[in-house]
Write a protein that binds this DNA or RNA. Structure first.
Lengths: 222, 222
DNA sequence: CCATGAAACATCCTATAGGATCCACGATAT
DNA sequence: ATATCGTGGATCCTATAGGATGTTTCATGG
């Protein structure tokens, strides 16, 4: 807990900036799951008053990233249990498959090509910074799935997927896995099916991808 | 805009109570879609300070019930457009069908019977209070779907469904429809299939139910 | 040695006040 | 008449301070 950066920001409102910053701290594990969050301490650290911090925490709670016990305080949400993780992947399977199918059915040409382009992109292999590499890969993965969700044309679906992605990201940071090559190949297959406007193939490819990803991640629970 | 109730509540924290109260006001249309929300005025009305009101609004924004423009103010979220409404029902179809299938597959006996019981319940037909009757029917419907979602054993799924229900409710209040008898019958079929542990039949029944409901609601857009 | 109760502490929660920003209105120039 | 600019008012946003609550510690009795 040593981040004595005053952090001078002012994009629009302090509450907004504190929210984004805090979200980043949680997602990159500068704040660990289970940690208690001292509002006054955070306020001092950010050189702001507790008021915008409270507002940011209220929003983070709605995202499920922090938990609140009234008159006691906030804590960073604990890591998913195995059961919760399985439930999360059930939900992902549901949402992502639909997202992919609809993208294959409805997306305009520009979006289809954008998805293919994203799938073709690979992370520069900086061997000297495995941690940074993993982060870059995660960003790439999130963007790929979000592009598909956007192409599905259903913003509620997109929101739901992104909401899950935050928790997936959280889990990944704790149990990084290195099988990125398989993931990239699976992404290419999905993108190809979407480009070909083949909903069945696209959904099947996404289903395979998520099933494989699920297996890869489940190893962390052993 | 005349609700001079001081509102003395103290369940746990003021922020929590204000959140629940405001949510109720929006859902029952005491605050109409598009209305500007004056933080100070609300605080005076509730006899609290603006601070907990802000916190409640931050949470409501995450629920999608209010919209925020930084440095300008909050407004009640506008009613769903036809396209958004269709997207919402697409999402509902996805989530509720899975919810029903899993409930039929996994639920324990007690929950199956609870669902059947809820489906068998009918709203007392108070002819003198059609508005109250409609509200009661809405509550019944929400509880039925939530019971199934709970029985599905996936809390994330349940959250997602309830999130959608808030918007459905909002739309319903503006365009009340009276075909409750059909709804009740459809509920019974779903409950029967779940009780019989027949996932395919349960999912199909839910699909029919939602398709019918979609048709009933879509009339409001003509 | 363990259980119970009370007091001190830390922290959260709320109210109030002032600075900052946006919007609306009106005046002036073209 | 229209467009542009400046001013006033309303409202939001943030900081500070004090009351309220939960937690912990420590002493006391069994």
């Amino acid at each position: 807990m040593a981040r004595p950066e005053p952090i001078r920001f002012r994009r629009s409102t302090l509450g907004e900036d504190v929210y984004e910053t805090l979200k980043g701290l949680v997602l990159e594990h500068s704040l660990s799951p289970g940690d208690r969050i001292n509002i006054d301490a955070l306020a001092r650290e950010f050189a702001v008053s507790p008021t915008p911090v409270r507002e940011a925490l209220a929003r983070l709670e709605a995202d499920g990233l922090v938990r609140k016990r009234p008159l006691v305080g906030y804590t960073v949400s604990p890591l998913l249990t195995r059961a919760e993780f399985e439930a999360m992947f059930e939900m992902r399977l549901l949402l992502e498959c639909a997202s992919t199918r609809w993208a294959a059915e409805r997306a305009d040409t520009a979006r289809r090509e954008a998805i293919s382009g994203e799938a073709a992109t690979t992370v520069a292999s900086e061997e000297d910074d495995p941690d940074g590499w993993h982060a870059a890969f995660t960003v790439l993965d999130a963007r790929f799935h979000d592009l598909i969700a956007e192409a599905s044309g259903n913003e509620l679906l997109r929101d739901g997927i992104n909401r899950l992605h935050a928790h997936l990201h959280l889990h990944r940071r704790y149990f990084p896995y290195a099988q990125a090559s398989a993931t990239t190949e699976e992404h290419r297959r999905i993108a190809a099916a979407i480009l070909a406007a083949d909903p069945d193939a696209a959904e099947a490819a996404m289903r395979d991808h998520l099933s494989s990803a699920r297996e890869r991640h489940l190893a962390a629970f052993d």
